[in-house]
């Protein structure tokens, strides 16, 4: 197979696999930048996947072609509401944020499976009839070289993910709101002294991560998994968390990290078609993304500096 054809198989696949991770990780960046650790990304994705699938199955006959789009919006909305639990615990109740995040993970999966059992009478839902299909982008896919690589065979949600990562960067680094959010995560007392409502900003940040996690989960469910069961979201949220840290708490860094995970994952899928990779035992391709991440972190990425006030509840008047 020619080199170009190999790229043509790998790159769209990489972006396809990366999209849910990008969305969730960008949300995670918001939460963590405001000083709230979010181990609960996994749970938020589970909630998003659950809502996305249930919504699609229920309203498919009414909404027709719009179903998946409305479903991911519904998933965003519900997951955002769901994430308030995490905000309530970690901001208002001053809970240990890691513990609260773990609770979110358990709760989302428990609720999702309980309701699935309740509504469908079995451990998993049916397959959705109208997922996101991969398409060629009108005109752009005809551009030589770039067209086949980046504009054909991709679901529109993949572009949405990349666009939202840039929107996230803009909001976080180019708007007053972003500045406030970051200041709350670095030095909440200074922010408070300047009249910024620390509690409010942190609630909003956690809800943004809820919305993005829900979006990520539903996009995963409606592009890759296509149904909801205990095995729909297994570790993608943790991978997104890794992307947040790998990307040094920066939306574009998270985008890069998620794309890297997607790339490594697609290698293990298409590996057997690629001459050089075909001779390598499959296990090496399977573990490659994870080993490469560790090596990258240990080697050239170096020490990542977390936001200063991360993990600490803000108590007015304390030093």
């Amino acid at each position: 197979m020619a080199f170009f054809e190999i790229l043509q198989t790998i790159i769209p696949q990489a972006i396809f696999f990366a999209a849910p991770l990008i969305l969730t990780a960008v949300g995670g960046v918001f939460s963590e930048r405001s000083g709230v650790v979010n181990i609960g990304l996994e749970g938020l994705m589970v909630m998003g996947a659950f809502v996305g699938i249930v919504f699609s199955l229920t309203f498919d006959s009414v909404l027709g072609g719009w179903t998946p789009w409305v479903a991911i919006i519904a998933a965003m909305f519900i997951s955002s509401l769901f994430s308030i639990i995490h905000a309530l615990a970690s901001v208002t109740f001053r809970a240990d944020q890691v513990v609260s995040g773990v609770a979110i993970n358990f709760l989302a999966l428990g609720l999702g499976l309980f309701l699935t059992e309740q509504w469908y009478g079995k451990g998993q839902t049916d397959i959705v009839e109208r997922p996101f299909y991969s398409t060629d982008v009108f005109l752009l896919s005809d551009i030589p070289i770039i067209g086949p690589l980046f504009f054909s065979g991709l679901a529109l949600t993949s572009y949405l993910a990349i666009i939202l990562a840039f929107v996230g960067w803009f909001v976080l680094f180019k708007t007053p709101f972003g500045l406030r959010l970051r200041s709350v995560g670095e030095h909440p007392m200074a922010a408070d002294t300047n009249g910024i409502n620390v509690t409010k900003i942190r609630y909003i940040a956690v809800m943004i991560s809820g919305a993005m996690g829900g979006l990520g989960g539903s996009v995963y469910a409606l592009t890759i998994a296509l149904n909801f069961s205990h095995a729909t979201i297994v570790g993608q949220g943790f991978m997104s968390l890794a992307a947040v840290i790998f990307g040094k708490w920066h939306p574009l860094g998270a985008l890069g990290a998620a794309l890297f995970f997607g790339f490594a994952q697609s290698l293990s899928y298409v590996g057997s078609d690629v001459p050089l990779l075909a001779d390598i035992p499959q296990v090496y391709l399977m573990i490659a993304p994870y080993v490469l991440t560790i090596l990258a972190l240990a080697g050239f990425i170096g020490r990542a500096e977390a936001p200063k006030a991360i993990g600490k509840p803000y108590i007015k008047g304390s030093r």
Binding site: D96, L107, L113, Q118
Partner: peptide, 20 residues
């Protein structure tokens, strides 16, 4: 459904977390 227990466990952790 068996999964009820997962919810109970999650809520227990949540309450422990909110010990404040």
């Amino acid at each position: 459904p068996t999964e009820l227990v997962e919810i109970v466990i999650a809520l227990i952790i949540f309450f422990v977390a909110s010990s404040y």
